[in-house]
Design a protein around this nucleic acid. Structure first.
Length: 453
RNA sequence: GCGGCUAUGGUGAAAUGGCUAUCACAUCGGGUUGUGGUCCCGACGGUACGGGUUCGAUCCCCGUUAGCCGCCCCA
């Protein structure tokens, strides 16, 4: 009955079986490729960051992906999730316990110490654009490798630094077309925080019965975390709980007031959020996050950027001299996602405006030279190597959306000419091939000159 | 790490316990010579992986993997 086709199918199957179908390579969980189509947004984010770094004189720093694991275990805090369960830690071939960098600040402090940066004029301002690794459960906007851009200012404790960093971060997102809010709090010095924690713990102990299992656990392990609990019962209790700002010492209060004054000065809107705490132990005084607002605002991964002051970190790490510091970092992936959600779609930069179609071998030969001429003149042109028919080359030109197509065939090669086709009107003219580069330069700039006048 | 939802060509979708798994987009090739966008034709390509139930599974069940949602936490 089904003679022909089933047979064909079986043959196909057999030949496949003969080759023994290999399992396709798979990406590790929580890791991803960033494809060309997404790069315009990545570029936009990076351009913005670079612009800010230049404007405020931050020096760029590159740091190794791999460092001794104790760099982080000793500084981030024993009971932080990052250290407890998210670090990629392993023993390297020389028996050293190492880890993939989970965050940037510790390495920054380490570099500051290692290179004697306290001998430089203070403050030392650094920025980076580096991958971070955390073995977390992946979700949208949360990956096991993500790219973080960070700005750090070391060596001064002036609150103007905090304000300026918040200003930079806020403007950066705003300029990318992302609606954000600044969440701001102070957690004071470790000493004043300890006093507060005693109060907070005492308060919640009296209401222990009302807490969820998870929050009971927090009460034990990390009471500050109760402040940002999502349990409705706990949230209710928080209304009457002691406020951290009431327990700060005078210096901490003054510092925080100054930060607020400076922000008012430059009209950066902020939300005083007494329940904002950050997950890493090294923070002191100012802590802040930048949240995406709008429709995406109530989603779990709405925090785009986090930062704060870490006045003791360098000292704790064994720095020659204490160096108060402040910084922030944000994830490019989340910024890019926020851009997409807010409808921001930057043009892929350096998109060619000219397509170069070549017909036949002689044209390909000349074409190689012509292409080089354009490159030297910094005029970007596209081509479709491997496509021979003019039809398919023009099709490719059309898909690229170029303004002009250059056509070089047998005839043109013999005449020493080239065809210039206006892709919009379809008008074509024959041009001396020796004059093609300056001519196209003129055509392309001509458009913008007209636009200006 | 905990709980839940999902998994069909590259992408987005449809369908069925049984015949050759459908469609659109994308890709590639055509619609005679060297001219794109629209149109027409054709080709490529798929039931995530491993078990089980069944005469028969893409469909039902279990496991694995991955993605997503919530928690934890964070960028």
């Amino acid at each position: 009955m089904f003679n022909k086709k089933p047979v064909v199918k079986e043959e196909k199957k057999l030949s496949l079986d003969g080759k023994k179908k290999k399992a396709p390579p798979e990406l590790l969980r929580g890791f991803r490729d960033v494809l060309p189509e997404e790069q315009a947004k990545w570029d936009a984010v990076r351009d913005q960051a670079r612009g800010m770094a230049d404007a405020y004189s931050f020096g760029r720093i590159e740091l190794p992906v791999l460092e001794r694991a104790d760099l982080w275990t000793r500084t981030l805090g024993k009971h932080t999730d990052v250290v407890e369960k998210e670090m990629y830690t392993f023993i390297d071939p020389s028996e050293t316990q190492v880890a993939l960098r989970p965050e940037g600040t510790a390495s920054i402090a380490r570099a500051y110490i290692n290179h004697g940066m306290w001998n430089l004029p203070q403050p030392v301002k650094l920025w980076y654009d580096l991958p971070m690794f955390r073995h977390d459960r992946p979700q949208a906007g949360r990956y096991r490798q993500h790219q973080q851009i960070g700005f750090e200012v070391l060596g001064v404790q002036d609150p103007v630094v905090d304000a300026q960093l918040i200003l930079i971060a806020t403007r950066l997102f705003q300029d990318l077309g992302i609606k954000v809010s600044v969440q701001l709090n102070s957690i004071g010095t470790p000493e004043s925080r300890q006093a507060y924690l005693t109060q907070l713990t005492a308060y919640f102990r009296t209401h222990r019965a009302k807490l969820s299992e998870e929050d009971k656990h927090r009460l034990q392990k990390n009471p500050l975390r109760l402040l940002d609990s999502k349990d409705p019962q706990t949230i209710e209790l928080l209304a009457a709980a002691p406020q951290i700002l009431d327990w700060l010492d005078e210096d901490s209060k003054n510092h925080f007031m100054k930060v607020i004054e400076y922000l008012d000065e430059v009209q950066v809107p902020y939300v005083l959020n007494p329940h904002l705490v950050r997950g890493l132990d090294y923070y002191t005084h100012t802590v802040f996050e930048i949240w995406q607002e709008g429709d995406a605002g109530d989603r779990a991964q709405n925090s785009l950027c986090g930062g704060g002051r870490y006045d003791r970190l360098v000292e704790v790490m064994g720095g020659e001299r204490p160096a108060p510091a402040c910084g922030f970092a944000f994830g490019i992936e989340r910024a890019v996602r926020a851009m997409t959600e807010s409808g921001s779609a930057p043009e892929l930069r350096n998109r060619p405006k000219i397509f170069f179609a070549q017909l036949g071998d002689a044209a390909r030969r000349v074409g190689l030279r012509v292409f080089e001429e354009f490159r030297k003149a910094h005029v970007l042109i596209a081509e479709a190597s491997g496509k021979n028919a003019l039809k398919s080359q023009l099709e490719a030109a059309n898909k690229l959306g170029v303004a002009y197509a250059l056509i070089l065939g047998q005839k043109e090669v013999l005449d020493g000419t080239i065809l210039v086709r206006d892709m919009e009107s379809g008008a074509q003219e024959t041009v001396d091939i020796l004059k093609i580069v300056p001519m196209m330069e003129k055509k392309l700039s001509g458009g913008s000159v007209e636009a200006e006048s």
